[in-house]
């Protein structure tokens, strides 16, 4: 019953977004939306390419930062530290997921932006800043789900490998990781979902220029920011174009999820 209503709510949302967003896309042509470079809503120019690229860059950057770091943390906590330490640290890490994104954004503005501006150049508000903040924000998801899936690997696998004279690190790499792979990939997919959907923190540190960034130090605007920044005052066709942005975001998330699911299924032994 609950599952059913969850599904139907999702369905209603989908229909609503598509219903609001499709007409304007049909009117100007999908191609204009997907590949148009200029976002000037007042001049009826609705090119979303900069935001599409922005979202992908920022999400990719978040994964590049968050995944290795998160997995490293998970491995250290499960394979190389005591159970007590893990029992103590894991809830704290999970607590980090509950911090409102405004706070992450604020920390970014106060610490990260000046740091990038002073040491690397550019305005500070940038792809890099957004990637770092998002990378940190997805850490709890990746760490906590990866720990769960590493812990769920039968103890006998580890023992079997160690008894064969494998070192702990070899065991982790060759046995634990492959055995926990589906859970780890799930954690990455969830992290990715969180990164691509995050809005507030990104708006605060990204600079939000609706142009394709030419370097990691340039400002960037994501699809979610685009909606959040302008929905407040948009009307008419402009408003519909923002819904169209939502449609595209929706489709991108679907595509990424499918790809991630497929790769995880294909590699299973």
């Amino acid at each position: 019953m609950i599952a059913f209503s969850a599904v139907s709510i999702l369905l209603i949302i989908t229909i609503f977004i598509f219903g609001e967003g499709m007409p304007v896309m049909v009117k100007y042509g999908l191609r204009k939306f997907l590949f148009g470079l200029d976002w000037f809503p007042l001049e009826r120019s609705y090119g979303l390419l900069p935001m599409i690229i922005g979202s992908l860059m920022v999400t990719g950057g978040a994964l590049v930062i968050g995944v290795p770091f998160g997995l490293a943390c998970a491995v250290v906590l499960t394979e190389f530290s005591s159970k007590r330490l893990r029992r103590f640290l894991k809830p704290i890490i999970e607590l980090l997921a509950g911090i409102p994104s405004v706070v992450y954004g604020f920390i970014g503005v106060v610490i990260l932006i000046p740091f990038i501006r002073d040491h690397l150049g550019g305005p500070g508000f940038s792809v890099l800043a957004s990637s770092v903040i998002l990378g940190i924000m997805i850490l709890p998801t990746i760490i906590s789900i990866s720990i769960d899936s590493l812990e769920a690997v039968p103890r006998t696998y580890r023992e079997g490998s160690i008894a064969l004279g494998a070192t702990r690190w070899q065991t982790t790499r060759m046995v634990m990781f492959p055995a926990a792979k589906s859970g780890i990939i799930a954690s990455i997919i969830l992290g990715m979902g969180r990164a691509i959907g995050e809005t507030m923190a990104v708006i605060m540190v990204a600079g939000n220029a609706a142009t394709i960034p030419r370097s990691l130090l340039d400002p960037v605007r994501t699809l979610t920011s685009n909606i959040a920044l302008e929905l407040g005052y948009a009307a008419g066709e402009h408003r519909q174009a923002l819904f169209a942005t939502g449609v595209i975001l929706f489709v991108i998330i679907m595509i990424l999820n499918t790809i991630a699911n497929m790769t995880s299924r294909k590699r299973r032994p």
Partner: peptide
């Protein structure tokens, strides 16, 4: 542990191919 090979009560092949299971210890060595 390489000198004293051990077989457990429940067979615990690693979730890999037959070849890789047998080659595992040697590879690690």
């Amino acid at each position: 542990r390489r000198r004293l090979g051990m077989v457990f009560a429940t067979p615990i092949p690693l979730p890999r191919s037959i070849f890789e299971n047998v080659a595992f210890g040697a590879r690690m060595a």
